[in-house]
Design a protein around this nucleic acid. Structure first.
Lengths: 102, 102
DNA sequence: CCGCATCCTTCACGATACTG
DNA sequence: CAGTATCGTGAAGGATGCGG
């Protein structure tokens, strides 16, 4: 439990997994999708996820250089949980709407 | 997604859900189980979870007073995810062991 | 385009003292 | 036993400037 929380520790980690869930993404794609995250934070958290073998980083030595991130098999199972978490979030919002609006 | 992350935001929230997963717990029980959490932090996070209707607070006006917390139905589904997260954490630790041990 | 180093702000958490 | 108010700490994150 502690270990899992540690892997997810960070403002953007869950969202990063969410973004990589269906397809690989470029650095700038992720930054755009996570509107509000600075390049510095993103890089750091990306590196940590990579160190935890949750995501894989691929460099394409083109000009300009292109870098893509995708989930490892290990990371895919974790992203699946993010999926469920998102569903729970939707139910939670629906509940709050009823509570606040009615 | 954002909504779900917001509900879980806090050092001890996931662990609190974890503790309440199977049975109701008293304030001091939780504080003991989460060894390292101060009463102040615990109170705050408990209140927030209560505001999000994830947990329910029950006061027994005995002497000394007794307070119990238990999951709402809504919270139970979230705690279920914590359960899965814990399983993932175990797999992750096993992987790291292999990685570290060679 | 990608990534890193540095500086600064934010804020969540912990320790303490006190109430009922 | 449970909860509240206040103060201090430290880590996480954001802005900026530079290099490949």
């Amino acid at each position: 439990m502690r270990a899992a929380l540690d892997v997810l520790r960070g403002r953007w980690k869950p969202s990063i997994l969410w973004e990589l869930k269906d397809r690989p993404r470029r650095f700038s794609d992720i930054q755009c999708a996570l509107e509000g995250a600075s390049a510095q934070s993103l890089t750091l958290q990306l590196r940590q996820l990579e160190a935890d073998e949750v995501i894989i980083r691929t460099i394409y030595p083109e000009i300009p250089v292109r870098v893509e991130y995708h989930l490892s098999e290990h990371g895919r199972t974790l992203a699946g949980l993010m999926d469920q978490l998102e569903l729970w979030g939707q139910a939670h919002l629906a509940r709050k709407t009823r509570s606040g609006g009615g």
